[in-house]
Design a protein around this nucleic acid. Structure first.
Length: 288
DNA sequence: TGCGTTGTTTCACC
DNA sequence: CGGTGAAACAACGC
């Protein structure tokens, strides 16, 4: 799915278009999207106003005025697109064409608001979910996820806290960065970018990261996530991120030149995920 | 044709 | 119990 920057971009679009507006219609074409929802009848939301657009980790939280909330996860291929006449804002996976007709074959949910904006939720692979839950279920749901601090603002995570988490894990550092319970919001693209910025090989066992590298890695994570937010989320074409304003620097750029040292970026597999790094900037860690 | 793709959950196995 | 590795969910383009 969209990672934190893409979900944050979707949140901002929702905030700027339909927060404060009243829901006038909701059309759910693929009921599987509601498979985790305790409330199955979407019409209960009609007539209520959207109060805010929140985000925790990669989950969107949309509280309505009738004590109900929409919780949404875009997973690997979800997209939010807001439309009002000729105006359009889109975030998330771009399949098949953000400039084309909506709703289309993979637009599974559409919401209409009384200020003229329509929100279309599309999802090629259908891994995403959409829940309608009462107010008193929101915090328990989030608590159950046990998300770590937000990757775009790690001011609440001390170097000592992070070091303590890393010390308990023998798996590759990249795998730990993808664990939402350690830090929330990092995905495959930004894990590669953060490790390149910090000059750490992605397969380095987490418990063997040098103490001096830990604060550098914390800074690098925030840098990569905020770089992603600045460009409005990664731009995916044919399942590959394309560079916008020099970002990403290594992800999906196998065979190209490292922007730091000029060496050729290579691709490997770490924790079953495609992984890109620069062999010069990120040397294989020395044994023991 | 088979493989890989911005994520998370579950399960078997230590 | 807790950590780890792999499969599963599914559709599409190369």
């Amino acid at each position: 799915m969209p990672e934190l920057p893409e979900v944050e971009t979707a949140r901002r679009i929702i905030e700027q278009t339909v927060v404060g507006a009243r829901l006038t219609s909701i059309d759910i074409r693929l009921t599987k999207m509601l498979r985790l929802s305790p409330i199955q009848d979407p019409s209960v939301l009609i007539g209520a106003s959207l109060l805010a657009a929140r985000r925790r980790a990669k989950v969107l939280i949309l509280p309505f005025s009738n004590d109900l909330n929409v919780l949404m996860h875009l997973k690997l291929s979800g997209q939010v697109s807001a439309h009002r006449q000729s105006e359009r804002h889109t975030a998330g996976h771009p399949y098949p064409d953000p400039l084309g007709e909506y709703p289309h074959r993979t637009t599974h949910i559409s919401l209409g608001f009384d200020n003229g904006w329509d929100l279309h939720i599309s999802d090629l692979r259908q891994f995403g979910w959409f829940q309608i839950v009462p107010d008193d279920a929101v915090e328990p749901f989030l608590a159950e996820q046990a998300f770590g601090p937000e990757a775009n603002d790690l001011s609440t995570m001390s170097v000592a806290d992070f070091a303590a988490r890393l010390a308990k894990r023998s798996v590759p550092i990249k795998t730990v960065l993808l664990d939402q319970k350690v830090i929330a919001g990092i995905g495959n693209i930004y894990a590669d970018e953060a490790l390149h910025k910090a000059k750490i090989h992605p397969a380095t066992p987490a418990n063997r990261i040098e103490t001096s590298q830990i604060p550098i890695l914390l800074d690098a994570i925030q840098w990569s996530i905020n770089a992603g937010i600045e460009i409005g989320g990664a731009k995916i074409v044919n399942n590959k991120a394309t560079m916008v304003n020099g970002f990403p620097e290594v992800h999906a750029r196998v065979g190209e030149a490292c922007p730091v040292c000029g060496d050729t970026i290579v691709k490997t597999r770490v924790g079953q995920r495609g992984t890109y790094y620069c062999p010069t900037c990120q040397p294989v860690p020395s044994p023991t």
